[in-house]
């Protein structure tokens, strides 16, 4: 079971409170997490990554285990602590704007 923390605006959009919990078969990667997230909440398509290119949006970051994983390959395995559910996968809206 993977724990995902969404930024406030995306929790509102998806109509969820608190963390999202996802079951993922196979290797747990950022792509696998986002695929599962968007499958459960279709309204989040396009909000975190481009719908066609799958490229992460510029002002969105991925953190876990006190590391910035945003620039890691999207198909790289996430840390064991995320895979085990010990630590959440954090989707962050960058500090910018007004």
């Amino acid at each position: 079971m993977i724990r995902v923390v969404l930024p406030a605006h995306l929790r509102t959009l998806a109509r969820v409170d608190g963390e999202v919990q996802l079951d993922i078969d196979g290797q747990v990667t950022a792509t696998a997490v986002l695929d599962a997230l968007e499958a459960r909440y279709p309204t989040l398509r396009g909000t975190i990554r481009d719908q066609s290119t799958k490229k992460r949006r510029a002002f969105v970051r991925f953190f876990a285990c006190e590391q910035d994983l945003s620039h890691e390959p999207a198909d790289a395995a996430l840390p064991d602590e995320v895979t085990s559910g010990k630590e959440p996968f954090l989707i962050i809206g960058a500090m910018a704007g007004g």
Binding site: R45, R57, V60
Partner: peptide
């Protein structure tokens, strides 16, 4: 829309009391 999270299209069928997101893919 949002500089962070892109485009949404919302639709209301009751004059704006409630809203539902619809497709946001403009290709």
């Amino acid at each position: 829309s949002s500089g962070w999270f892109g485009q949404q299209i919302q639709r209301s069928d009751d004059g704006g009391s409630t809203w539902t997101p619809v497709d946001n893919h403009f290709e």
